[in-house]
Amino acid sequence: MIKRLVFFQKFFFAILFCFASSNLVRAEQNVVTLAYLENGLKELKNNEKQIALQLLANELIRDSGVKMIVQPVRSFAEMRQLISDGKVDYTILNGYHLLEHYDFLQSFFVTPLLTIQRGPSDRENFIIVANKQYIGQELINLQGKTLSLHPQYLLMKFYLEYLIENSSGLDILHFFSKIKYTKTASQAVLDVYFGSSDLCIIPKHIFDLTVELNPAIMQKIFIMHQSGKQFFPVLILNFKHVDNTIRTLINKNLSLLNQTARGQQILDMFSIQSVHTVKLKKLHPMQNIFKHYQSLLKK
């Protein structure tokens, strides 16, 4: 009698194991990985990034049976490896990184890409703001002056470097007598206002916000140059090996995030207004600038 009971107990656990294993296999088949660079997402503190992205991930795959894992990556080299290995399904990249590694990435990602919108447009317009004493002058005339720069804004920094290189043939370190690195982009404008610096580069929408806080600053500063709305600051790539159904679901959820209160709350954590799809051809303006910059450097 006891032996029979032991047998039935083992049989029962074996069935249970098989069931669980099959579920596990099934679960592994529905797992999506979202990778991000640890030194990105400057809007958030380091200890908040993982949580915020996981919240985003959960919202994206809600009620789908899909599990999305958020994976931080220390460097683009590591990211590159993961992409090559097919271990990354989605990635959030700085626009500059896309430009820099476009040739590599284009063989892995599928279109449409996704981009975020922070200001009035999904593309950013970088402006150069200078002290009013320099009205009527060009950027080239400000050689040897002091620049305030928010260095973590890679795409903006790249654009400034492009402008300086294009106009003077110098890099920014040699063009300006002093570069004051600021913790925020808006602080760069304040430096110009308070006279700590002579000029700065800043996204237009941030400049507008700064002026809104104190319109009186326009008495001492002016916009010297505007890039125009051609820069995508952040892009979300999804890769070819991702199941179409899942891709469609996730892309759709990303696009509809700002339609729900909870989705908007999550976007607010990243200071994002909305997420859009973007066609490749819209990247061409900034790609062209990058290519031009590359050619200038080769000279």
Partner: peptide, 12 residues
């Protein structure tokens, strides 16, 4: 006397 930082910090 980096008032830019001071303002930015206090706005934050």
């Amino acid at each position: 006397n980096d008032f830019g930082f001071i303002v930015e910090h206090n706005v934050e």
